[in-house]
């Protein structure tokens, strides 16, 4: 662990985030004045019932959506007013995503899926390959680099997604229900993997989840309800 007590730096800072979908009588308040800092090295879970605003908040933090009110900063950079292209660059450089469904590009091999973000970041070919293979080895997929997603199990695909999220050396990894479609054994393996990466490499994780097995590893537990944070505890 690289944390140094009070010197921890906020990777993500949300101030007064409100998100309203629709207008007038049909308006849905998905987020209601969220204030939240995610600190460097956090292994945090975002829990709450369906519709509590977990995914919406992750989308705001991941620069996939913009708030109706308030401000989100990632690594000290405010997302307000940034162009779509600049937001793409920010996602590429600072954020890694792990989604609920495996979400790999089906026509690319495991290695090519992992390399994809490095190619977008214009990393030279030799370095790209070694980093992709190292990331796949890190998640236990050595020897499966050339397999396409259709030739991998669900757990293996999610491992590829984790490798892809990590290979760009992001400041934070956002995971939305990363174990939702996995069996118990695979879930346990993946949670252990992410926890190990957090412990050994200090990578910051913020995971939206219902899964108690994920929450059990969490060092910080944020509870949401009706678009608000109702508790934020560290263990």
């Amino acid at each position: 662990m690289q944390h140094k007590g009070n010197e921890m730096k906020a990777i993500v800072s949300c101030k007064g985030i409100t998100k309203v979908f629709g207008k007038g009588e049909l308006a849905v308040h998905a987020l209601r004045g969220i204030d939240l800092d995610i600190m460097e090295g956090d292994f945090a879970t975002l829990a709450g019932p369906s519709g509590s605003g977990k995914t919406t908040l992750l989308n705001m933090i991941g620069a996939l959506d913009h708030p109706t009110e308030g401000e989100v900063s990632v690594d000290g950079q405010s997302l307000s007013g940034m162009s779509k292209s600049a937001l793409s660059d920010l996602r590429l450089e600072k954020v890694g995503f792990i989604f609920q469904a495996y979400n790999l590009v089906p026509v690319l091999s495991a290695r090519e899926n992992v390399e994809f973000v490095l190619r977008l970041a214009k990393v030279p070919a030799a370095e790209r390959r070694s980093r992709a293979d190292a990331a796949l080895a890190e998640v236990g997929l050595k020897g499966m680099e050339n397999r396409r997603p259709s030739a991998l199990s669900g757990g293996q695909q999610q491992r590829v997604a984790i490798a892809r999220a990590l290979v760009g050396r992001p400041r934070i990894v956002l995971a939305d229900e990363p174990t939702a479609n996995l069996d118990s054994k695979t879930t346990a393996e993946l949670v252990a993997l992410m926890y190990r990466l957090n412990q050994e490499s200090g990578i910051t994780f913020l995971m939206g989840t219902h899964d108690p097995r994920v929450m059990a590893h969490s060092k910080r537990h944020i509870e949401m309800e009706d678009g608000k944070i109702i508790s934020d505890t560290r263990s």
Binding site: L64, S85, S88, R91, L92, E93, F97, P106, F116, R164
Partner: peptide, 15 residues
């Protein structure tokens, strides 16, 4: 869905 994924990974609209 896949275009959304690619955009989330950092692909720009022009790409």
């Amino acid at each position: 869905h896949e275009f959304g994924l690619l955009r989330a990974l950092g692909l720009k609209p022009a790409h």
